[in-house]
Computed example of a mutant assay.
Amino acid sequence: MVGQGKAVKVKMLFFGPLAERLGEREIEVALEHGTTGNQLIERFELSDFLDSGLRVAIDGQIGASLDTPLRDSSEVAFLPPVSGG
């Protein structure tokens, strides 16, 4: 039984085209304790964005494991691919 009914609050931050598409830059969601970054991505149907170069930072760490359960008050930022010139 994952989490046994406990919930954690997670802040999701969106940047660039994703923020424009969603019409939000920041939302707070309640998740079942034990929810991973990958499960959060599935729930909000963001997998296609990951495939096109979207990066995810958890609590300020880019490339953090998306298989690790999110903690209460975690911050998950969805960052667009960086283009340089």
Rank of each mutant, 00 (worst) to 15 (best):
D72N: 14
D67I: 00
L40K: 03
G34N: 01
L40Y: 04
A57C: 10
R43E: 08
V82P: 01
K6V: 03
E26Y: 04
P81A: 15
I27L: 14
Q39A: 15
A7T: 13
H33M: 14
S74Y: 08
D51E: 14
I41Y: 05
E20S: 12
P17S: 11
M12V: 09
Q4T: 02
F14Q: 10
D72P: 00
R43M: 14
G63V: 05
I27C: 12
D72A: 13
V82Y: 10
Q4A: 15
V29P: 00
L31I: 00
S65V: 09
I41E: 04
V56P: 02
L50Y: 05
L50F: 09
S83M: 12
S74M: 07
N38V: 04
Q39F: 06
E20V: 05
F14N: 11
K11S: 13
V10D: 09
T68N: 14
T35V: 07
I62T: 08
K11I: 12
S65H: 01
K6P: 00
P69R: 05
L46Y: 10
D72I: 01
L46E: 03
R71A: 15
V10L: 13
N38P: 00
Q39K: 06
D48R: 13
P17V: 02
L54Q: 06
F78N: 04
A19C: 03
L31S: 02
E75Y: 05
V29F: 00
D67S: 14
K11T: 15
F14I: 06
F14R: 08
E45A: 15
L70R: 02
Q61A: 14
L79N: 04
R55D: 07
S52K: 12
S83T: 15
E45R: 12
M1I: 10
K6N: 10
E26D: 03
Q61Y: 04
T35W: 01
G63F: 13
L79D: 06
L40R: 02
T68E: 15
I62S: 13
D72Q: 04
T36F: 09
P80A: 14
G37E: 01
A77V: 04
P80H: 04
V29Y: 01
P80F: 08
F14K: 07
V2Y: 11
R43L: 14
E42V: 03
E32I: 02
L40S: 08
T68L: 14
E26F: 06
S83H: 05
P81I: 01
Q61K: 14
F49M: 13
Q61V: 13
R43D: 07
E26S: 15
L70Q: 04
V2I: 11
K6E: 15
D67T: 07
Q61L: 14
P69D: 06
L18V: 11
A64C: 08
E28R: 07
P81N: 06
L31K: 00
R21M: 11
A7D: 08
L46A: 11
F14C: 11
S74Q: 09
S52I: 10
S47M: 13
T36D: 03
P81S: 12
P17H: 05
R55K: 15
S83C: 13
N38D: 08
I41N: 02
G37F: 04
G16M: 10
A77E: 06
A19H: 01
T35K: 02
E26K: 11
L70P: 01
G37L: 06
V76L: 12
R21L: 15
E28G: 08
G5C: 02
T36E: 06
K9S: 13
S83K: 07
E28H: 10
